[in-house]
Design a binder for these strands. Structure first.
Length: 959
RNA sequence: GCGAAGGUGGCGGAAUUGGCAGACGCGCUGGCCUUAGGAGCCAGUGCCGUAAGGCGUGCGGGUUCGAAUCCCGCCCUUCGCACCA
């Protein structure tokens, strides 16, 4: 028999689908439209097997949808601007466009080899003037609407990439792309006002029910809404100092203010004697890289600026400090220090000797008291125990743990035993210092000072201790109660003392608002999107700087602002090219300079899904009428790595265009599916860096024999751990690679590539090929429909299996996309067919029906072999013109079912029962109890209870 | 530290609604074929046990006739955020 030779058959079909136009969208017909979209790639180098996760899955889904009769829009394009092209240009002297288009040709060749098809008439590349003209148009529209602005700001600058970065492109203080520590620089840059949409971007996440919860959560966290109050403190000089806090209920516990070192008030408020030190500290803070500044385990630093402010709620005089743990870019750049209820403030206060005033009762109401040996008279331990307090004795000292409401009774008892000149503390809801003759509360700054003085008078050894907090911190026993961030009843809070925790924030805010001390406020972690890049290979920002008119937008009809054609690209990008810079002002006609920044490539990709609808339209960015009919995208598939950046920006741009009236939808992607990455071992040699797995010999470097470090990582060219589709296709064919890629596991999960697994897919296809070819002569003409009633038992079983498989496949494609399980069930069906044929020749009509459907169901995964077998079956039309199989509910019915019988929770028998018996609880119970195997098990036992689940099982409880 | 997802054979994974745990594939074992096999085909394969049987979904508890699935506590892994006031 002719053996399976994918090389022979695949090439034959490679252009077939394209030529027949199956993947061409009928753009004006939107009755049964489906917009399927894969995230478009950055064309760098070649595709590897890991990329298949996205494109092969997409191809399978669209093939399914075509067979389901949908009018599919499945376009592909190129996110073609960006640094690698520019770096290649600088290094190799090629023009970035040539480099890019070479890669694009390579990608297209590989898509064709994979059998991954698109509507290529709609191909776009963001680096082409026909496209970036409209990216520039978008910029102008945002500018007109006040959503694009230029401002001086502290920005993230990557010294290796020679450009600024968006906040989203900084990961743990390092450049997302190259890993270099990011520097902070003050530069004038262009921003998009995404923060104006923070609340809507957050609220509308609720609407995105077709998105993975994980992605929605990541966006929610990134937007970082926090609700609280803005409170105005007043410096002694009179300047108001605005502070944002989520815990206005702790205002009475403020013992200091901290400003960010860059805070504009620092200069004005710093006292002359502190100026030198303040300047030193500010320089120190500015020198810190983001990485250093953010490192978690770092000790708090800061300096007082010699100024004081007044706490509006109680008039306390509190010192003002600067410290780099306060960020100028969040909130107001100033925070109130409440060391009793904020961990950072607590560390800061402890280190710098700032007082701590508890103002929120801890949860549970516990309190603790510690008595040093020698501080009390004999008999106290016994008296405490008799009174029912929890007491631990150790080396003569006492540790008392008090539960709620015991404090007063304890204090009066212990006072009677304290020796003169001794004291003890009670730490719980508030702190008290108990002396023989009095009790001092630590409820305000004055009280705290008084209490400290009292202790120091009695014990001159405490001269170095600067606060009660430091004093109490010295006692290990108290430590876990000195600070807590929980909500609770307000204490030591003047008029609001006693407010329960649940109402504390709300009531404090109304109290503040009534007195004009502050107001309710919401802040976001999200910052405006920095879109300027100081590079060549991007869309030029269409703005002109005129010495007379200021910043002037390029008139729309003059777009695009073309990238200058230059033989050499300097490191400074457009600023290096005088012909580009020098221009005339569109407003006054005088000499002016072009803006030399290009746009972040995320701007290019934040609207491309609109362009696919009318990619060649040279009058407008998109056809609004058609865009409104085709969008939102019905299914968008891409990697999770874009969960924040690309997806958040696209949502923002969509909302902005919606507000401007260009489109009638305000979310771009109805359903989002994030596929996992394919991983593979990556080997690293200490001297020779990454070694391709194929060159590794017994875990050693081929160059120096050194032991290699192995990590299983996402396939990536830079780590040399890629598997080449070209080689796979050469050895096994595209169908095998496709099948294995989709079978290896659930598409949303990261999975390690396995060479052996590929062989498994190959074996399956070989078997299928042999099976079908072997049956071909006898089923070729057996075209009459199957008569299910006429089938024997085996035949009925196979018939049912077929329909179960159709049901399974259809539901997965339409639901959670568990294509791995669809393939598993197709393998089962193939196995069932083999089994059926082993028992005898079988019914040729049934065999033909199973084979026919098997080919159709498998075709989205392995289109080449299926198209070939289909044509040999003599079906006439192509697979893609044939409707997807429908299952017959009647065929799912079974005459006989196997029902397990559990006795005391264990399966003890399996009964074959007619389905009408199995579906009737009473008959089922009867059948189970009378079965011999069950009877044997039940002898000598009393049946307590029988649960009969129709069609499922019987559970018997017996003693 | 906070948040989320996850933990099932030797491995990837299945069990979608509380109802037969381990589908399907890999690997492994045995056999066939072969000059040979890193090819192919057939059979077996959760663990312990000769067997009867027992034990099994990270660990400990709970709910239930019945739990991989629900609840409580803990451990581990991965991801995201991380001095965000």
């Amino acid at each position: 028999m002719e053996s399976y030779d994918p090389k022979l058959i695949e090439e034959k079909w490679r252009d077939f689908w394209r030529k027949r136009g199956f993947f061409k969208a009928r753009i004006t017909d939107t009755k049964r439209k489906f917009y399927y979209l894969n995230m478009f790639p950055y064309p760098s180098g070649k595709l590897h097997a890991g990329h298949g996760r996205n494109y092969i899955l997409g191809d399978a889904i669209t093939r399914f949808l075509i067979m389901r009769g949908y009018n599919i829009l499945n376009p592909m394009g190129w996110d073609a601007f960006g640094l690698p092209a520019e770096n290649a240009a600088i290094e190799q002297g090629v023009h970035p466009r040539d480099w890019t288009w070479r890669n694009i040709q390579e990608f297209k060749r590989q898509f064709r080899a994979w059998g991954v098809e698109y509507d290529w008439d709609r191909e776009i590349a963001t680096c082409e003037p026909e496209y970036y003209r409209w990216t520039q148009w978008l910029f102008l529209k945002l500018y007109q609407r006040g959503l694009a602005y230029r401002a001086e700001a502290d920005v993230n600058f990557c010294p290796d990439c020679d450009t600024v970065l968006a906040n989203e492109q900084v990961v743990a203080g390092r450049c997302e792309r190259c890993g270099a520590p990011v520097q902070r620089r003050k530069l004038v840059q262009w921003f998009f006002r995404i923060t104006a949409y923070a609340q809507r971007l957050l609220d509308d996440l609720e609407k995105l029910t077709g998105w993975p919860e994980r992605v929605r959560l990541m966006q929610r966290n990134w937007i970082g809404r926090s609700e609280g109050a803005r409170v105005t403190f007043r410096a002694e000089q009179g300047d108001p100092i605005e502070v944002f806090t989520t815990r206005p209920d702790t205002l009475w516990g403020v013992t200091f203010l901290v400003l960010a070192p860059e805070h504009p008030l620092v200069d004005r408020l710093t006292s002359p004697d502190r100026r030198k030190e303040v300047e030193r500290y500010r320089e120190f803070a500015a020198r810190q890289t983001e990485v250093e500044r953010l490192s978690t385990e770092r000790e708090k630093t800061g300096v007082p600026i010699g100024a004081y402010a007044e706490n509006p709620v109680n008039g306390s005089r509190i010192p003002i400090w600067i410290a780099d743990y306060v960020l100028m870019t969040y909130g107001t750049g100033a925070v109130m220090g409440v060391p009793a209820h904020d961990e950072r403030d607590f560390q800061f206060a402890l280190k710098f000797g700032l007082p701590v005033i508890p103002v929120i009762a801890p949860p549970g109401g516990v309190a603790k008291s510690y008595l040093r040996g020698g501080a009390f008279r004999e008999g106290l331990p016994a008296a405490l125990k008799e009174a029912g307090f929890g007491v631990e004795e150790e080396g003569g000292s006492l540790r008392v743990t008090l539960s709620e409401g015991e404090k007063e009774r304890y204090i009066s008892l212990v006072q009677g035993y304290l020796k003169p000149g001794s004291w003890t503390g009670v730490v719980g809801a508030g702190w008290q210092l108990v002396f023989p003759d009095r009790v001092l509360n630590v409820g305000s700054l004055e009280e705290e000072r008084a209490a400290l003085r009292a202790c120091q008078e009695l014990d001159p050894g405490l001269g170095d201790v600067r606060t009660i907090a430091q004093l109490l911190w010295g006692v290990e026993f108290y430590r876990d109660l000195l600070f807590h961030a929980d909500y609770g009843e307000m204490i030591n809070s003047g008029p609001l003392s006693g407010t329960p925790g649940g109402e504390a924030i709300r009531r404090t805010i109304s109290w503040l608002e009534a007195r004009g001390f502050g107001r309710h406020e919401v802040t976001y972690r999200l910052r405006d999107w920095l879109v300027s890049r100081q590079r060549y290979w991007g869309a030029p920002i269409p703005m002109i700087h005129c010495p007379r008119c200021g910043v002037v937008p390029v008139p729309e009809e003059e777009l695009p602002v073309l990238l200058p054609e230059v033989p050499f690209i300097g490191k400074k990008g457009l600023a290096d090219i005088p012909e580009f810079v020098e221009t005339t002002c569109p407003r006054c006609g005088g000499p002016a300079k072009r803006d030399t920044d290009t746009m972040d490539t995320f701007v290019d990709s934040s609207w491309y899904f609109l362009r696919y609808i009318s990619p060649k339209d040279d009058r407008r960015p998109f056809d609004p009428e058609l865009v409104n009919r085709w969008l939102p995208v019905d299914l968008y598939v891409g990697g999770v790595e874009h969960a924040i950046l690309h997806l958040l920006y696209s949502r923002f741009i969509t909302k902005a265009l919606y507000d401007m009236g260009y489109i009638s939808f305000d979310e771009p992607f109805r359903r989002l599916f994030t596929q996992g990455m394919i991983t593979y071992p990556a080997y690293r040699c200490p001297t020779h860096h990454w070694i391709p797995p194929s060159q590794v010999e017994e875990g050693r470097c081929p160059h120096c024999g050194a032991e290699l470090e192995v990590q299983v990582l996402a396939m990536s060219k830079s780590k040399k751990n890629v598997v080449s589709p070209d080689e796979l296709i050469e050895r096994y064919g595209a169908d095998t690679e496709r099948l294995y890629t989709l079978f290896m596991g659930p598409p949303e999960r990261d999975i390690e590539w396995s060479e052996e697994g590929v062989r498994g897919a190959w074996r399956f296809l070989t078997r299928l090929w042999g099976l079908v070819l072997g049956q071909l002569p006898r089923i070729r003409e057996a075209r009459e429909p199957v008569d299910p009633q006429a089938l024997d038992e085996e035949g009925k079983g196979l018939w049912r299996k077929l329909h179960l498989t159709i049901k399974k496949a259809t539901e997965e494609f339409e639901g959670r996309l568990g294509v791995n399980t669809v393939i598993a069930s197709l393998m089962e069906l193939t196995g069932a067919l083999s089994g059926y044929l082993e028992r005898g020749p079988g019914d040729p009509r049934l065999v033909r029906a199973v084979i026919r459907n098997l080919i159709l169901l498998l075709s989205p995964f392995t289109p080449f072999i299926c198209e070939e077998l289909w044509s040999r079956l003599g079906e006439g039309k192509s697979v893609l013109e044939t409707p997807w199989p429908e299952y017959d509910v009647a065929a799912l019915q079974v005459g006989e079912v196997e029902i397990p019988v559990q006795i005391n929770g264990k399966v003890r028998a399996r009964l074959r029962l007619a389905s009408d018996v199995a579906s009737d609880p009473r008959k089922l119970e009867e059948a189970a109890l009378s079965a011999q195997a069950v009877q044997a098990r039940l002898s000598g036992k009393e049946v307590k209870r029988v649960i009969a689940v129709p069609g499922k099982l019987v559970s018997i409880v017996a003693r």
